[in-house]
Amino acid sequence: MISFKQGHISIAFVCMVLGFMFALQFRATLEQKASLPYQRVEELSARLLQTEKERDLLQGKIDELQNSPGSLAEVRAIQELRLRSGAAAAEGPGVVVTIDDSKTTAKAGENQNLYIIHDDDLLKVINELRAAGAEALSVNGQRLLGTSEIRCAGPTLSVNNVRSAPPYEIRAIGDPSTLEGALKMRGGVAETLKVWGIQMDIRTSDNLQVPAYKGSFQFKYAKAVRPQEVTP
């Protein structure tokens, strides 16, 4: 066997250092491999935590502003305005009108367009509901505001710039029997649409939910006029 003539101890020491370095490097490599995805996770979770904190802070600010003290009359006025503008969800008795395309197929030579729902059909229904005193309206979950459009968008309808396909569910809060009667009256909308086989289902309800407007209100051109500035 090979024999080192001198310095057994020092060679043992050198070997010890070598083994130490081996182990250290091995562990460092292992750790490095394990830590890269781990670091990413940590970074993401930190960001999530921060975003959540931010959200809670902003939510708190909203609550604070909404509940900020004002006179009772002011608060009630704001609540009424929010309800009228559609910024607040509404509930109450009313009707749910579901309209779907006709099931009958067009006869030869007939215009197929007559058998599907158009924006003006929907407008007629909504107009009738409004005339009958509907206080809050929504079409397929979109609250109808003074600025809402009901517009043909290809095979779909666009309300509040959100498209939806048939069947259309119109929710109207108001006196249920009046609303129902307004639609079902002789020569009324329901009868006209029935001719084309368009399906219309009117259901009254005692407790109806109409969602709030989800978009934002932005007035680029219109400005409020102060009452005293109004010229007769």
Partner: peptide
Amino acid sequence: MILALIGLAVGVLLGVIC
């Protein structure tokens, strides 16, 4: 030779424990 091997083993052990 044996001493060297023992040293190596001790070193590895130290590195793992440390």
